[in-house]
Amino acid sequence: MTGKREVEIQISARPTDVLLEKHHENKAVGWYEENREGIDALNKFAEENGSFSDFHRSF
């Protein structure tokens, strides 16, 4: 053995992985845009009143 390993690579798998990754990124951005108003409202509430779970903390 010369120290080289043979690796079986599916040429078609990589472009599919890249496309799926981009699809998920676009979907996440779309979700954020659709929910931006609600997210901003919750962030504002948390800044003014603290987190919903603050009263559960024992520290």
Rank of each mutant, 00 (worst) to 15 (best):
M1N: 13
M1F: 11
M1E: 12
M1W: 11
T2Y: 08
G3E: 09
G3D: 01
K4S: 12
K4L: 06
K4D: 05
R5T: 09
R5Y: 05
V7T: 03
V7L: 06
E8F: 01
E8M: 07
E8L: 08
E8V: 02
I9M: 05
Q10P: 00
I11H: 07
S12V: 14
A13V: 00
A13G: 03
A13D: 05
R14N: 10
P15A: 02
T16E: 14
T16P: 00
D17Q: 05
V18E: 09
L19S: 12
L19Y: 05
E21A: 03
E21R: 08
K22Q: 12
K22W: 07
H23C: 04
H24L: 07
H24I: 14
H24Y: 03
H24A: 07
E25P: 01
N26V: 07
N26A: 12
K27T: 13
K27C: 09
K27N: 06
A28H: 11
A28F: 06
V29G: 02
V29K: 15
W31E: 05
W31F: 14
W31Y: 14
Y32R: 09
Y32D: 08
E33C: 01
E33Q: 12
E34Y: 04
E34N: 10
E34P: 00
N35P: 01
N35Q: 01
R36Q: 13
R36V: 05
R36G: 02
E37V: 10
E37L: 07
G38A: 06
G38F: 10
G38E: 06
I39A: 14
D40P: 02
A41C: 03
A41L: 13
L42F: 10
N43Y: 11
N43R: 14
K44G: 03
K44T: 15
A46S: 06
A46N: 10
E48W: 04
N49K: 08
N49W: 04
G50T: 01
G50I: 00
G50A: 01
G50C: 02
S51D: 11
D54N: 03
D54A: 02
F55A: 10
R57Y: 04
R57M: 04
R57A: 08
R57V: 05
S58D: 13
F59G: 11
